[in-house]
Amino acid sequence: MTPAHPSFEAQLDAYLDGELASTDARELEAHVAQCAECARFREGRLALRAAIAAEVPAFQASDVLRGRVRAALKNTARPSGLNLLAWWRPLALAASFVVVALGSWSLAWQRAAGAALADDVLSSHIRSLMPGHLTDVVSSDQHTVKPWFNGKLDYSPPVHDFAAQGFPLVGGRLDYLDGRTVAVLTYGRRQHFINVFLWPRARGPSGGPNTRDHQGYHLLHWTTPDYAYWVASDLGTAELRDFVRLVQRADSAETGGGG
């Protein structure tokens, strides 16, 4: 026999692991009993198993990690509803009434991909409200926040401060959404926070904003020719729309576009 043949070795391993079907196992057993090379192979594997047991540790999750996990689970379960995907079906139905009622709102919300992304944006927003998660760079100065993104992203997001209009810039951070690292800008309004997620898109028509409300949070999504925008906040819808208009105006002023 030739243990150099990999599939034979693999079968021998499966036999030693008790994973071979019984008929194959009986056949191999008879062979191994009278084959010196196979006996050596078995010795080697047994020695390896002993060495792994002695030298390669299984780790234990620390209490700190257990605490972190519990906190994250609680945070996921509580404010956003346990399973946003499961929530989605009745919501989609409800949304269809909303769309009819409000007429001008886009049907984009009904697209499954958009729904999953909306979930992610909302999760990220809620996560950001945990202590210490809101911003990676804290500054009300757009000229501090914008360069902070240099080298961290493959695009340079437009950053504006709207303190004069009552929406001061609080800072920025990175997040991971829609399969890419994205810029998040955080603004304040009284005790509320507004997260603005934006990332470049393949050039296309402007659209939106579309609105979705979920458990006290509002999400707005729109696109400019260059960027996809998502805004999440618990701020009232009217004020949030004022804010979105500010962002849109600043964006179109910067890019010179009409959107």
């Binding site: 299984a58 780790f59 234990q60 999750a61 519990r70 379960a77 346990l82």
Partner: peptide, 27 residues
Amino acid sequence: MLESNELARFEAAVLPHLDAAYTLARY
């Protein structure tokens, strides 16, 4: 509340395997 029930069930099913999860992630 249904949601906290759900979380409790999840924790009972999954948290006993946190060491295994950490070991795999660690390697």
